[in-house]
Nucleic acid binder design. Structure first.
Lengths: 229, 229
DNA sequence: AAAGTTGCGTCAATGGTGTTGACATAAGGG
DNA sequence: CCCTTATGTCAACACCATTGACGCAACTTT
């Protein structure tokens, strides 16, 4: 049953009924593509099996369960977004780019992001990302413990926003629409007596429907800058 | 089928097979209790029906679907956490307390938080919370548009951290443990050649396993303070 | 080249999930 | 007292993840 128990060297590559030869890599590829093309619900063992042309249960030869597969997919995303990133100049600019890369990567795969943004993949691409992030904090002049704590706060803030926006983007269309329209509709009709502050900013409320990631990131980075210097 | 379509006044209160009389409130109560007591998976229409002593499908007379029910439960949580909150003094202190209340409320209901933190409930308790939050920003001296944008960044940062930590807390125990231990185990064994920065802070890495909410919040608030004054 | 292991794809089955339409019954208004 | 109709119940559908038994075929060994 168990996945990965079989050493890679001993692998016997038997083609499936439809001819393709399964690989961990191929499965992750397919999962990523499937989650992207079709809606949020497309990522199930059965659909994945169908897309790969194999029996669903064959996947359990490669991954313990769907959680294991999910982490593998998440690490692939991290790898893609951080690929070729080697910040050289200003540490703050480095952090800014890293934030944009991570946020952008997860935005491109909202369904996965919503499920995996808060996980620790414990896989190579994540190792590299943390290595870079902590390096940037150290370059900012923070002592070791502060660098780690600030990196945690930084990446969690970025991941938190990414997860929020991704989860929203991954919602079924009619639900996403309803949530978005709330600020321009339900919140517009509230009584000014009961909600004076909301009435005051009524015309600006639709701003609540757009992502606050950029605003939050710049506020956060400015706070870091102050503490460093 | 549809929920809420029946005006409240016309309701015919028929007891279920086991004698209890269903109410939207009673259902939300039960859902909250169920999600708290039993593990993360306890929240399903069937279990809820069993706990209420009614047929699962009876719930569809009160809520369109599980999403509708989820939003009702989430709004209840907001109401509980914000109950009696009327910040009078310093606007920054008000924001700090609001952040702690929201984060704490969701921490007490991780399963719900993981599912609902990024939603707009469009219900009374949420209205009140936004009213208070925007009021605090206006008190900080920001103009209308900036107040709204800063409130969005503020609440999304808080909700993002709450969602991250809640999702982690709602994980199945063995998965949560594995994720947590990663920083004290998998990350400790990495080669110092390949990951020099990680090696540098190796002894501080376990800090990554604890919530970064407080750190992030204080950084965020300090940035707000600078912009206000 | 034949025999023996064993990886792994397939099949069938289990027990879970949300949701719906038909139905019967009792509640409450006239 | 009847009539309308709200609503709890039942049965069914279409999904889901996961597992154990099975047998083929791809390697290893002799």
């Amino acid at each position: 049953m168990a996945a990965g128990r079989v050493p890679v060297e001993r692998r016997r590559r038997r083609p499936t009924k439809t001819g393709t030869v399964l690989t961990e890599e191929l499965i992750v590829d397919c999962a990523l593509r499937l989650a992207g093309e079709h809606g949020a619900e497309a990522l199930s063992v059965r659909r994945l099996g169908a897309a790969l042309g194999c029996d669903p249960s064959a996947l359990y030869r490669y991954f313990h369960d769907t959680d294991d597969l999910l982490l593998a997919v998440a690490d692939r995303i991290i790898g893609e977004t951080m690929g070729g990133f080697a910040p050289a100049g200003d540490w703050l600019a480095g952090l800014r780019e890293m934030a944009h890369r991570v946020y952008g990567g997860y935005s491109r795969h909202p369904k996965i992001a919503a499920l995996a943004a808060y996980r620790v993949t414990r896989r190579p691409h994540e190792f590299r990302a943390v290595e870079i992030g902590i390096g940037l904090m150290l370059r900012g002049g923070f002592d070791k413990a502060t660098a780690v704590r600030h990196y945690a706060a930084f990446i969690d803030t970025v991941l938190g926003h990414a997860a929020l926006d991704a989860a929203h983007a991954a919602l079924a269309p009619e639900r996403r629409g309803a949530d978005t329209r709330a600020w321009a509709e339900a919140y517009q009709g509230l009584s000014a007596d009961e909600f004076p502050q909301l009435a005051e900013v009524r015309r600006e409320l639709p701003l609540m429907a757009v992502s606050s990631f950029e605003t939050a990131l710049e506020l956060f980075l400015s706070a870091l800058e102050v503490r460093a210097g």
